[in-house]
Design a protein around this nucleic acid. Structure first.
Lengths: 169, 169
DNA sequence: GTCTATATTCTGATAGAC
DNA sequence: GTCTATCAGAATATAGAC
């Protein structure tokens, strides 16, 4: 993996997260990665290729995370909720960036998000044993993400979610 | 309220929902509303003015909805969860459009979303009486929205959420 | 209130030098 | 692998006619 290639993906994600798809232009990405536009287009021949590179990065990080859930000492559910709140890590960044791209109607990004959702649900179900409960825990995590994505602050979310979860099992 | 003005806001929301902020150009909005670009710019002198018009529409619809929650026969929580799943109504459209705009930075859209969130939470708390539970119900609703916004299908969400909610009270 | 025409800047992409 | 130069088309916005 080329270092420049990774810098370009980092810059692309940073712009998507901070200012949305409209700001994530080839010009802006190249400038943020301190490369010329020509340099960018050597690694990613088109904007679609850049988006695809981002999706591949997310898929790799997401699958690793689903595996980590299953062996987490605090259990898959708590690991998942904690992860949903946490902001700024590589997975979180890749996920928020992909959500921004998904809004551009690209069915490809939605497909990756949907597949990862399935992996996370399976890990939750393996721990909790209850499909409806696993589903609701996942929705709570989704809700935390939703707020993070829209910029809404909700600091008490994790504590309240864990408290209610404790009452349910 | 001018009819053309409303048609322009409708077209703006439709484009934001279907294809994201990049597709919601002045040209495209004007064409979808069957008005010329000059006609659009008479009603909304800039793109920022168009976005502001959309935020005002959302604020009005959202406040009316929070009031409706408090008098809903099935109770505020069920009303809220059902509303979060429902797709295509005026409030739903305005909300999804505002989320897309919120990503373009501009704290203004986030401020409206945050304020509406507060109204909905107050209505949930008034029915449920339990802050942590009200918070979790809201997060589940947020989660349903998150999936709707990213295009992920999750048809069983409402039934599972209502089943788990029944166990909690 | 709505239109057409135009100015200006931005955006994605190509070509070719180094 | 990276750069500069350049192009065609799109985007926001203005001016002025009707």
């Amino acid at each position: 993996m080329s270092a420049t290639r990774d810098r370009l993906l980092d810059a692309f994600e940073t712009l998507l997260i901070a200012h949305g798809p409209r700001a994530a232009t080839l010009d802006a990405v190249a400038a943020a990665a301190e490369v010329s536009k020509g340099g960018l287009l050597y690694h990613f021949p088109s904007k679609a290729a850049l988006a695809q590179g981002q999706r591949e990065r997310l898929a790799a990080l997401g699958e690793a995370d689903a595996a980590a859930m299953r062996t987490a000492p605090e259990g898959a559910a708590e690991y998942y909720l904690r992860e949903s709140m946490q902001s700024g890590g590589p997975l979180d960044r890749a996920l928020v960036a992909a959500v921004r791209l998904a809004e551009e109607s690209d069915g490809d990004a939605t497909a990756v998000l949907e597949e990862l959702r399935g992996h996370w649900y399976d890990a939750l179900l393996a721990e909790l044993g209850d499909p409806a409960l696993a589903h609701v825990v996942q929705l709570v995590g989704d809700g935390m993400y939703y707020n993070a994505v829209t910029g809404v602050k909700d600091p008490a979310a994790l504590d309240d979610a864990l408290a209610v979860l404790a009452r349910l099992r």
